[in-house]
Amino acid sequence: MKNLIKDLMRSKAGLIGAILLLLIVFVAVFAPFLDLPDPTRGDLRARLAGPTWDGLFSPGAHPLGTDEVGRDILSRMIHGSRVTLLVATTAVVLGGIVGTALGIWAGYKGGLVDRVLMRLVDIQLAIPLMLLALLVVAALGPSLRNVVLVLALTSWIRYARIIRAQVLSLREREFVQSAHAIGASTMRIMFFHILPNVLTPALVVGTLELARIIIMDSALSFLGLGVQPPTPSWGRMLADGRVYISSAWWTVTFPGLAIVLTVLSVNLFGDWLRDYFDPKTRNKK
């Protein structure tokens, strides 16, 4: 842990990513305690008001402007981040658990499970993920739960492929043979000897997936298939604001910036994490 932090301090990109990410998460978590205007209530007298720093701390100030029905953009962005982060992390964790479990099973046991899994991977790789997500959400109907399920569905295979490859080499290691030699059951070997040794790659895949899923979640809500109004979401804000892009640039710029910054910080952090755990790049330092 100490090494981890020391190494992070040395990596400029990783540190920036980590700080940004912490900031975003912090704001999202504590949004209810910030004195923000109601993100769902509009003020028609103040519709499409531009960003202004005048009277920043007075009630009714809109530092990042308002949208077409006069709702505060800053407040909607912050509340939108709560939904996006919640959806994305749940999907990443869900996809991670399923993908890791199946990857371990396929890699260690081989046989039918492995063959079926690999065919599924081939099929999913051939279908654009966005199309798959659209189909499923359209079929199940848009809701918070369905969006999470769909995003996890597009994600588990990435874990499964990488974990399976790791397991193929792990199971030839002598400590796995040794567990076999003492009479340990397959379940025991998978749980105590394989799983702890694939957690690191799973974590690395997880951060990279988080970035991809945030984008995909925004795209889904942009298309109206994400969480439903009046709950604010970044993608929805982009979709609603794009009509006014020439007259009220702030309606799309700030939510767009939020997506870019979040994805960027996750990616910066994830890249550093991957390098940190990859012995090949690590030893060069």
Partner: peptide, 11 residues
């Protein structure tokens, strides 16, 4: 086993 490094579970 021959290789005492690979014979222990690092985790």
């Amino acid at each position: 086993f021959q290789d005492p490094y690979s014979a222990l579970n690092p985790r």
